[in-house]
Design a protein around this nucleic acid. Structure first.
Length: 466
RNA sequence: GGCCCCAUCGUCUAGCGGUCUAGGACUCUGCCCUUUCACGGCAGCAACACGGGUUCGAACCCCGUUGGGGUCACCA
């Protein structure tokens, strides 16, 4: 999202690439889900899957031929070498040398003779290919963190091609960036420790005529969940589908997410995608990790629902109501008219779109199908029957069936004549209309339902009281 | 454990040497509005991790401590 905002702000090109080099965990399904999520959020890209571009294909699983060719060049140039050590062997050697076994590979195979290689092959071992790391410090100006330095020797030679000949992400990520002319890379802080080896690789590639050296990096703060660990892709809290299903709106989600590590202004935190783009600069992103706070996310989402044009909101609510089975896939005109009238009533009270069925459901039920919730029935008192009885003639007498007149008539009949407090006068009517203790504004709801329907609902509740 | 990153209210943040008795938002509490619930309005609780420097002056610069995080794969 920050890559998108930065590209849009700067007038650059956003390249979207699918890094699916691990056949065991990438699937067509996860690819489609990923693209759908990007689209839902409102992100678009100038090059990538579905839109194409001059540097395609954009799925690494379709770029094998390119990789094979580059690997051969790297080997010929002496930048990559065959390595036979198993992780266990490396760990044992580290330990034997008095170092921590977690240090990993120890560059042991750098100068293997042809004879040694042949003997490993005779054992049935197939080598991986590793890149030789340079002997000097690697330093770069991080767009978020400033100068970052990695001491010479602190990063071991790393694997670029598996024993089975398949290339690894650590290799094809920088390779594709170089091939595709990527100038800026904004990514999570978790990639910070692997940046030195990527920079080393860019330089090696540059030497064999690919690319023009390393792009600029900006390492973004990680987002943590309720716990103290980074939110991982598999974490339920990080599952976008959950938020989509819960009725978060894309504008709200983008707004909230942007606030994790960035802010628009000192005294303002609700903004549109366009305002985000206009104001975004990678230099303003701060480097400390943020925690995902559902409550704030919801509050921002509610604000965005309020910001929507009522017709637009009605449109989105129709889909939610359809999904909930309250509306057909192709609603009738009268159903849509009801929805358009009712939308302003709920716009001020919704946090997420998935509240629509419970808030608006009663508009779409038959008058004799209103279920009276238990907690709603409990609010009824001895005088509720009298309230219902008195409200019927009052409503029959209303001249123009419109919220103001309805309110006046009921106030006169119940609050004035029966001397019942508004809360207890209108409460039973609310229950009659909606079956609930809490509902959208009563008189407006009655206006939308119409006089006949309102009267029938009152009668139905009245009957069930005895 | 090695290496690296980070450090302002519970949370997200503003702050880029003096305008900071540290601002905003979310959460929470109280009040107002009110036919319910919300929305809205007002008020309140609540932070510069600690210790040294540098400086006339430090939340802001430097060092250390502590704490948190990341990373050390033939995953990405």
């Amino acid at each position: 999202m920050f890559n998108w905002a930065y590209a849009r702000h700067m007038g650059g090109q956003l390249i979207f690439r699918i890094e699916d080099t691990d056949a065991s965990r990438d699937s067509e399904k996860s690819y489609h889900a990923l693209v759908a999520t990007m689209r839902w959020l409102g992100l678009d890209w100038d090059e990538g899957p579905e839109v194409g571009g001059p540097n395609g294909p954009y799925r690494q699983s379709e770029r094998s031929a390119i990789y094979t060719e580059v690997v051969q060049k790297l080997v010929s140039a002496g930048a990559a070498y065959e390595s036979f050590s198993t992780p266990q062997e490396s760990a044992e050697r580290q330990q034997a040398a008095g170092r921590d076994s977690r240090l990993g590979y120890d560059n042991f195979d750098r100068e293997l003779t042809d004879q040694q290689k042949a003997s490993f092959r005779a054992e049935g071992r197939e080598p991986v290919l590793r890149i030789r790391m340079p002997e000097e410090d690697i330093v770069w100006q991080d767009l978020v963190r400033g100068e970052v330095r990695s001491a010479a020797g602190s990063v071991p030679d790393f694997v670029i091609v598996r024993a089975n000949g398949k290339p690894l992400y650590t290799f094809v990520n920088p390779l594709d960036d170089a091939l595709m002319g990527v100038t800026h890379v904004l990514r999570g802080e978790d990639l910070l420790p692997s940046t030195p080896r990527q920079i080393a690789l860019y330089e090696v590639l540059n030497k064999i005529g690919i690319g023009t050296g390393a792009p600029q990096f900006g390492h973004l703060p990680l987002v943590m969940g309720h716990g103290t660990k980074k939110l991982s892709k598999r974490d339920p809290e990080a599952n976008f589908d959950t938020y989509i299903e819960r009725g978060f709106v894309p504008e709200g989600m983008m707004n909230y997410l942007a606030l994790l590590g960035w802010s628009l202004a000192a005294d303002r935190d609700v903004f549109s995608p366009q305002e985000f783009i206009d104001a975004f600069d990678i230099k303003d992103v701060n480097s400390n990790p943020a925690r995902f706070d559902l409550k704030k996310c919801e509050a921002i989402n509610g604000d965005h629902i309020r910001l929507l044009a009522p017709d637009e909101l009605a449109h989105r609510l129709a889909r939610v109501l359809t999904a909930a089975g309250l509306l057909p896939a192709d609603p009738t005109d009268s159903q849509l008219t009801i929805l358009r009238s009712a939308t302003p009533l709920v716009q001020e009270r919704m946090i997420t779109l998935d509240e629509a069925p419970s808030m608006l459901g009663f508009f779409y039920k038959a008058d004799d199908e209103i279920d009276i919730a238990d907690d709603a029935r409990k609010t009824l008192r001895e005088d509720s029957a009298a309230v219902l009885d008195a409200s019927i003639p009052a409503l029959v007498a209303v001249d123009e069936w419109e919220a103001q007149s309805i309110q006046q008539a009921l106030r006169a009949a119940l609050v004035d004549d029966l001397a019942i407090k508004p809360k207890f006068a209108f409460g039973p009517l609310r229950v009659a209309m909606s079956g609930r203790r809490i509902s959208p504004p009563l008189f407006e709801s009655m206006q939308i339902l119409g006089r006949d329907s309102s009267l029938r609902r009152i009668a139905a509740l009245r009957q069930s009281i005895d």
